[in-house]
Amino acid sequence: MSLARQWGLEGVRPLFAKEVLRFWKVSFQTVAAPVLTSVLYLLIFGHVLEDRVQVFEGVGYTRFLIPGLVMMSLLQNAFANSSSSLIQSKITGNLVFVLLTPLSHRAWFAAYVGAALVRGVAVGLGVLVATAWFAFPSLAQPLWALVFAMLGGVLLGTLGLIAGLWAEKFDQLAAFQNFIILPMTFLSGVFYSVHSLPGAWYAVSHLNPFFYLIDGFRCGFFGASDASPWLSLAVVSTATLGVSLLALHLLKSGYKIRS
């Protein structure tokens, strides 16, 4: 018996390829547009704060900002990919064609989250390349950057999967993104160091798992961070495992996709 069959992962490849092709066919909208948005953020915030803010010694604000923008773009687009795919399939009725296949819940999970990770990484790399002309930050500890990029894509891809299963219309999905995902990403230290916050907000920031993603990813570039990268790894790994188990349970039970 093959390993794929043993783990219930047969059929992952065609569904994964379908999901990747879905966003890549409109890559100008799904990849290029988020890259342009991040470059605009860099131009505005970098121009205004470059000479006024220094977080790490010897690191200018523009260099400090780039890893945060890369990770923020990765997270937001990983979430958008899996959530938009599911809600569109549910509303248009195309989901029935996937339901007719003998795919297991593990295969669904691997395909949707895997495609979300691919889109997130593609956008993140695009942002990194586009912003390198302004100030390319050296990779002091590239392994940390890679680990947190992968975990971030999986975590947000899984959250997008859960949101897509829960939402029954685009308004509900937009509310999930606007009131949960966007605030958590913007308030995770993308544009600032949490050490600059007052005591109460400093404590609240450490309750946000996205903070540990941004901080751990930034550690890979500069070898410095606001929190220990090992603590960040523990928090992010626990959060990723928790939402993954929840998503697998929802898929197995057919939550809002099977009558």
Rank of each mutant, 00 (worst) to 15 (best):
P14Y: 07
V243R: 04
S27P: 02
G157S: 05
T101P: 06
S232C: 13
A135T: 07
N208M: 03
S259I: 05
L42S: 10
V70T: 15
G152R: 02
D226F: 00
N94G: 14
T92D: 14
Y255D: 03
T238I: 12
A80S: 15
P209I: 01
L187H: 04
L86H: 10
M1V: 10
A78G: 13
G220C: 01
Y212P: 01
L213I: 01
F222C: 03
M71A: 12
S205A: 15
G58P: 03
S228Q: 03
Q29Y: 11
M71R: 10
Q76E: 11
L151F: 04
A163V: 11
A247T: 08
A132C: 10
I214G: 03
L100T: 08
Y255T: 14
A132R: 11
L15H: 06
L156W: 14
V113D: 02
M71D: 02
E57H: 07
F97E: 04
A115L: 03
V235H: 04
Q6M: 13
F134K: 06
K256E: 03
Q88M: 15
T238M: 09
L100H: 05
L42H: 12
E50D: 10
F211V: 09
D51N: 09
A145R: 13
A110S: 08
A145C: 06
A32H: 08
P209W: 00
R218G: 13
G164T: 00
R52A: 10
G157D: 08
V235E: 00
G157E: 02
I180G: 03
Q177W: 09
H47G: 14
R63F: 05
P209H: 00
S253Q: 15
L43C: 04
G114Y: 06
I66F: 11
G164M: 04
S253K: 15
A234Q: 03
R119S: 08
V190S: 11
A115H: 05
L21S: 12
G160R: 09
L95G: 15
R106P: 00
K169E: 14
L69Q: 08
A132E: 07
S104I: 13
I87L: 12
A110K: 06
M72Q: 10
P67L: 12
T30A: 12
G157N: 04
S84Q: 14
V20I: 12
K90I: 00
A247C: 04
T158R: 07
L155E: 00
L40N: 06
V20G: 08
S196T: 15
L146G: 05
P209Q: 00
G189E: 10
E19S: 10
P137H: 05
N178G: 12
